[in-house]
Design a protein around this nucleic acid. Structure first.
Lengths: 345, 345
DNA sequence: GTGAAAGCGCTAACAA
DNA sequence: TTGTTAGCGCTTTCAC
């Protein structure tokens, strides 16, 4: 057992080994692997060949320690498979990689005592150059003591951090569009099945719905609470089916699907008796019965746009923040909505 | 500007600063933060207080460099929002955190030239103690040169690595259960809408379906190819509706939903004319019309069980691998399947 | 129980 | 264009 006794696998070749094999200094190897200028093509070749030969792989921990930068971004996500958060995470993954950064993920189970603050702390320990908080929920005012930039999707008013960037605040706008669509079809008012109140995304949608109603002077029916699940949409549907409803805007497609099921079971036809609009445009929404009218969340553009701001803040700390761009908003009209007609019964 | 010029933020306190403040040696601070023994309660208190006071946070890069271990696990995932991969990722996230490790994620877009090998390489550079390959697709024989243990979900025969662990090989079994259910209902045979052939998960399901048919001596209709999307299920449904079908097993719920839509549009009733079974038990499957009979993929137990093996292999490199445990298999019977009856028409 | 010294593999600053 | 030197913040070894 002649291991070095020190860190890790004594056999993993270091840049020193490469230098030795290529007959150059260790610093030159470093230059080559960082694509610095002032390395002759010849030397670069030799170094690369030697590295390949002995199976050298740069050690990121050492690099991070020496440079103080990790070229990695941490994301705080919710530990749920919900379509929204999951899709946003996928978009963030892609965008982070495209920007040339590595991704570290910490998930905060809902109800987690340490919550977002704990997750951020853990990312900071791991070492990240920037942090993304995806789909935040309200856990009370939160002051983040961080010196890296923090990107939050959903502009929650109770977050503070020295270098806070917000992006993707379009739920409200989309909710207005959804509600307006129903109002435009002649419905006197629109009911709303909301997501959990602690979610900023749920609040934004409820707010957009409310504003659309007020703008038309429509009466504002009480919000029915859901938890994003189809099952909660179903429960809400049973409640709504008992009263008189002609139009419902559900805060996501899953709840819309549960709602439709409850409506059908109660003998209400969709869209003849009740029009339903969802939110997200999940891939199956076009194939349920009836195909669902919904608004599309542009997750990928949101992630790309947000990351652009974050990377800018990381790499140009002095510069002013970039202007956020607004991703395209889209209403997808399918068969779950129809013009309001006075009931024959 | 009196920055050290060296790595990172010169103001971030180090264990040396804590040592100074607490009047102990730097090594003692290290002991405290690693919960080593042989530190008096008194000293431990003082160190912790001092650390708190000056806002000390251990630096993981330095720790990794010195120890050769990162206490992090890397996962190679597909950059898709598909329910299966996304749910498995969520389970892995949770399991990794529970095991006290940090998570690094690299996604491989399908069609990515460097593919899994490139993703693994990038994780190795980042430094991980173990690697998880989630939902792999076949990119040809792949020999991973890695000295950390690698956990693969789905036991693909063409992966090799010095310390390979496989878990979650239950798709085939579940597919048999789904197919048997239809056969038990009296259907003479069962059609299959498969996922993309490059996915091991798709192959396993097709294989389970095939074995179930053979075990009963049922004729084996040609497989209809899908791509996991509801849209491809719909396309497959149009094809199937043209022939005579009484029972279909779709390789996931989304395709089943698309299929049902196509069937309904073609005037076939579900389940009266055609029975349909899906795969996954997505949260909405109970609320579509008709509610879908499906088999449940136990993602969380799969992730937990897999990670147990991986962490064991990381922490007890000498010991034999643990025995894999089989998560519970579950058929969820709802309203999309019915006993076969000779058509009145 | 505690501390001193060395060094993990790399980058930064400066020199040649 | 290349090399030398120092040192990032920690863990390891070994001495006390």
């Amino acid at each position: 057992m002649t291991r070095s006794g020190r860190g890790g696998n004594s056999s993993a070749p270091s840049s020193k080994d490469v230098a030795l094999a290529a007959g150059v200094s260790q610093k030159t190897v470093s230059r080559v692997f960082n694509n610095e200028q002032y390395v002759s093509a010849d030397v670069r070749q030799r170094v690369l060949a030697a590295a390949e030969e002995i199976g050298y792989r740069p050690n990121n921990a050492a690099r991070a320690l020496a440079s103080g930068r990790t070229r990695s971004i941490g994301v705080v996500t919710l530990g749920t498979g919900l379509y929204g958060p999951a899709s946003l995470l996928v978009g963030i993954e892609r965008a982070v990689q495209n920007a040339g950064y590595a991704l570290r993920v910490v998930s905060t189970l809902e109800g987690d005592p340490s919550g977002v603050a704990g997750a951020v702390e853990s990312l900071l320990e791991q070492g990240v150059d920037g942090i993304v908080i995806s789909e935040p929920i309200d856990e009370g005012p939160l002051a983040l003591q961080v010196d890296v930039p923090v990107l939050v999707f959903g502009a929650p008013p109770s977050f503070t951090a020295p270098r806070l960037i917000t992006a993707g605040v379009i739920s409200e706008e989309l909710a207005r569009i959804a509600t307006d669509h129903l109002l435009d079809l002649g419905h006197e008012t629109v009911h709303h099945i909301a997501g959990p109140r602690r979610w900023y995304a749920a609040r934004d949608r409820a707010e957009g719905w409310r504003k659309a109603l007020r703008a038309r002077g429509a009466v504002e029916p009480p919000v029915v609470d859901g938890d994003w699940s189809a099952s909660s949409g179903y429960a809400a549907g049973r409640v709504l089916a008992a009263g008189d409803v002609t139009a419902v805007f559900a805060a996501n497609d899953d709840m819309a699907i549960g709602l439709i099921r409850a409506l059908l079971e109660a003998g209400r036809r969709v869209p003849e008796d009740v029009s339903v609009v969802g939110f997200d445009d999940t891939p199956i929404s076009a194939y349920v019965t009836p195909p669902l009218t919904t608004v599309r969340q542009p997750f990928d553009p949101m992630a790309t746009a947000g990351l652009r701001l974050l990377v800018h803040a990381i790499e140009q700390p002095q510069a002013a923040d970039l202007e956020p761009e607004t991703p395209p908003l889209e209403l997808v009209v399918r068969a779950s909505t129809a013009r309001f007609a006075v009931h024959p019964g």
